[in-house]
Write a protein that binds this DNA or RNA. Sequence first.
DNA 1: CAAATATTGTGTGTACTTTACACAATAAAT
DNA 2: ATTTATTGTGTAAAGTACACACAATATTTG
Lengths: 245, 245
Amino acid sequence: MQSSRSMLLKNIKTLKVIRSEVENINHIGLSVDCVIFGFDENKLKVLLMRSDLEKFQCKWSLLGDLVKPDEDLDAAAYRILKQRAGLDDVYLEQVYTFGKTNRHPGGRVVTVAYCSLINIQHHKLKTLANELHWHDVDSVNDLAFDHKRIFDLSLQRLQKRVQEHPLGFSLLPSKFSLRELQNLYEAILSIKLDRRNFRKKLFSMEILTDIDEIEKNVPHRPGKLYKFDYDKYERKKKKWTGIDF
Amino acid sequence: MQSSRSMLLKNIKTLKVIRSEVENINHIGLSVDCVIFGFDENKLKVLLMRSDLEKFQCKWSLLGDLVKPDEDLDAAAYRILKQRAGLDDVYLEQVYTFGKTNRHPGGRVVTVAYCSLINIQHHKLKTLANELHWHDVDSVNDLAFDHKRIFDLSLQRLQKRVQEHPLGFSLLPSKFSLRELQNLYEAILSIKLDRRNFRKKLFSMEILTDIDEIEKNVPHRPGKLYKFDYDKYERKKKKWTGIDF
DNA sequence: CAAATATTGTGTGTACTTTACACAATAAAT
DNA sequence: ATTTATTGTGTAAAGTACACACAATATTTG
C-alpha cells in the first residue's frame, strides 16, 4: 500500500490535470457583444465603452460579457444592455457569431453579436454613465478585439434589414415627422432620398398613423407628426417578403 | 496535523467540486450543426443522419459535432462535412446560433448552424455512407433536439438568399439547362414560375455562359446547356444590393 | 419513314413601380 | 409686412414585372 504522502501527491497531480483541462482543453468561452445603434442630431450613432482589458486600454469596444452557463443567449444580450447601459425594453436581434481561435487575446472566446436599436432621447440619462459614449458611425475605427469587424457587419446588416422591414422606428421617438424619418433613413443608408418619393412610398405602405399633431418651435412651416402602427404592419407583413421572378 | 486519511478525503472532495465545475459551471459546450441541401429528381433534399444519442435513437438529426478548442468555427463546419459525409469543397454559410439553455438533453450546448449547398450527383458515392440519408425537405419533421427549428430557419434563409444572390448553382452540375435551373428555383421556393419570364430574367442578369452544347437523351427537343459565370457575377454584384426608395 | 409526343425557344402588350422634378402654403424670425 | 426655411402635393417618363401562344426540334412509336 502507498504511503499517505504519495497518495496525496498523486491526488494533487490529478487536481492539476483537471484544472488545466478546465482552463485549456474543455473550455471555449462564449460571450455576447451588442452593437447598440442610436440616432441623434441626424446622425447614426453607436454606443461604445472603454475596453476593460489592459491590452486595449486606450481603445473603445462594444458592450459585451460572458454568457452564464444557465442563461439563454438572448437573455445574456438583454442582461448586458441592462447591466452595462441601463437599457430596457429595446429592439434586439442576433447578427452573427464570430469564432476565430485567435480573436480574443485572453483565450478562446467565441462571441455572438447582437444588434440593438434604441431611442437615444428616451434613454439618455441612464446611458451617459461612466465609460460609455455615443460615437458617430462614420468615425468608428480601430476598436478593441475584432469589434470593428463585428460593427461593420452589423451596420451592413442594419442597412439591409431596414430596407425590408420597418425597424427604423425603434430609433425615433414614438411621434415623429416625415422629415425626421427621412433623415433617419438617409443616415442609416448614407444616401440622399427624394422627399416626395419617400413620402409617397411610406404612405403607400400604410404603416403610419397621422396623430393630428404638428411640430412645435421650428423656424418654418411645421410638419405633421405620425406614429408607427405596429398592428397595421403585422397585417401587411407578407408584402415585405414577396417573391419576384 | 490531519491524518493522511482525512487529507485524502478532503482532496477527493476538492476533486469532485472541480469535476462538477467542469461539468456544470464553467462549461458551455459549443457545437456546429450543418444543414446540407441537395437537389435531385427535381426536389430539394436535406442530408440527415441517425441521431447518436440514445434518447433520440429513432430520430434523424443534422450533421454536427462539438467545436474543438483550437478550431475556428468555419473550420469546424468544414470538418464536419468532411468527416461525417466525405464532402469537400462546398458552399458553406453561417445561418444562426441557437442558445436556449435546455436545447440539448446532455447539458448546456450552444450550437452554430451552417447551411451548405452541394451537388448530389457529384458527391453521391461518398455520402451514401452508413446512417446518412437524403430527405425531401417537405417531408422533414420531428428531428432530434431542436434540429427541426434549425432546419426550418435555414430553409427560410435559403429561400430568401437565393432570390438575392446566385447561390443555387452550387446545387446543380456545372453544366445545366434552363429548365433544370427553373426546376431548382421552383423546388427551393415551392412555387411555379413562368418559363418565359424566368428565362428573360436570368438572361438579363448576364451571369450565364452559353457553352454551345445541348442536352442528350431526352425524349423531346433538347435544351441548350449553360454554365454559371462567377466572374461576370462578381462584376455585377452591386445590382443585387441596390437601394430603392 | 411518317406521325405523335414532349419540350424548347421566342415577343408583345398591360399593369405596376420607380424616378425625376417645381410651386404654392405656412409658421417663425426680423 | 417681409424674409426665410421647410412642408405638402401631382404628373409624366422610364423601367420592371407579369400574362400569355405558337413554331421548331429531337425522340418514340407504329
